[in-house]
Computed example of a mutant assay.
Amino acid sequence: MTGILEPVRSRLIETLAGRSDEVPRWVLALEDGDDAGFFSAGSAPWVVHGGMPTLVAGVRALLLQALHPGALAGVRDFSRFREDPLGRLAGTIQWIHTVTFGSTGQALASSQMVRAMHKRVTGTFVDGHGVTRPYAANDPELAAWVHVAFADAFLTAHEHWGSPIPGGADEYVAQWATAGELMGVERPPRSAEELRAQIDGYTDAGELRGGPEVEEIVRFIRRPPLRRMLRPSYRVVFRAAVSTLEPRHRAMLGFRATPFDRAFPVHTATSAVLKGAGVLLGPQTQAELAARRRLARLAAA
């Protein structure tokens, strides 16, 4: 059975990590840090970011973030998502796992590197009220939207398909606020209620919008250039991500419910896909395993 599944496993690892022939060096480096990091073993961020529901969460975060025209302008103007979408995905995973599982110094360095790369991401965009405004990826306002969209996506996906979160949803949001602060967010939410209230605030104020540019990104996210063997599972993951969005956000993204959508057993199908991914990838990420080796070394010193 292992031999039959190995090609699928390799393609899945390649999609998530950028290559399948070896563990990335940045992952192995997580073993070498000199302290426990911002989050302890078994903490809410460890559980949420180490689980298979992250496959759904990543898609959901991209969809939700695209509704802010400032965030979308940065992606369209500067990102190489068309030429190297998997490279961009691998870079995002590197930051998430380094901040979650790395030492304090590694988390700080990774965040500083991302912010340095963002310094060039500036331009103008037309906001939800039709006003042309400047944007910069490191602006606290834009960083705040990216943070809340990310946190909401990962929390929601885990609540649907993950194991119990230590301390509950509020604990995850409160702890992951540290990551927001590392990226320049001035007042990251500290509870699930505050998280959802901030997202509602953007929506109610008309800061989010759909339109042709959003629909272009949605088409790409719906059909990324994946290996053929991964496409059926990805279609399930995509439907799962869409199903967890608020109705008004789905409408902005151009999704309309059909009889097939209502009949499709999305929760059951997604559970099966995520269970299969867990069999292929193992119960713990390579980043978590490296972090546990670091913690064991520190405990033995």
Rank of each mutant, 00 (worst) to 15 (best):
215 E>I: 01
223 R>C: 09
210 G>V: 05
109 A>G: 12
208 L>A: 08
247 P>Q: 07
45 P>M: 01
301 A>V: 14
57 A>N: 06
154 F>D: 13
174 A>T: 04
82 R>Q: 10
52 M>V: 13
5 L>W: 07
262 R>N: 07
249 H>E: 15
239 R>G: 12
137 A>F: 00
181 E>V: 12
134 P>W: 02
227 R>A: 15
22 E>G: 11
109 A>V: 10
214 V>N: 04
99 V>Q: 03
134 P>I: 03
200 D>K: 13
7 P>H: 02
5 L>T: 13
113 M>C: 08
166 P>E: 02
240 A>M: 05
181 E>M: 13
47 V>C: 04
173 V>H: 01
164 P>D: 07
138 N>A: 10
197 A>H: 08
43 S>T: 04
33 G>C: 09
47 V>P: 06
135 Y>A: 09
69 P>C: 05
236 V>G: 05
247 P>F: 02
48 V>R: 00
61 A>P: 08
58 G>F: 00
293 R>G: 09
247 P>V: 05
183 M>V: 09
234 Y>W: 05
298 L>Y: 07
213 E>D: 15
188 P>Y: 00
11 R>N: 11
273 V>Y: 00
90 A>R: 07
34 D>K: 11
130 G>L: 07
118 H>S: 07
206 G>S: 03
253 L>N: 06
25 R>C: 11
54 T>Y: 03
229 M>T: 11
296 A>S: 12
171 E>I: 01
209 R>L: 11
285 T>S: 15
192 A>L: 02
199 I>E: 12
33 G>Y: 03
37 G>I: 01
97 H>S: 14
127 D>I: 00
213 E>R: 11
216 E>M: 08
235 R>S: 10
256 R>T: 14
293 R>I: 03
294 R>I: 00
129 H>A: 10
210 G>D: 09
139 D>P: 10
46 W>I: 03
111 S>K: 04
80 R>C: 07
118 H>K: 04
167 G>R: 00
284 Q>L: 14
178 T>L: 11
184 G>S: 04
31 E>G: 13
93 I>A: 12
107 A>F: 03
249 H>P: 11
30 L>G: 13
121 V>E: 09
165 I>H: 00
156 T>D: 10
187 R>W: 03
69 P>N: 06
180 G>I: 02
22 E>Y: 00
270 T>N: 05
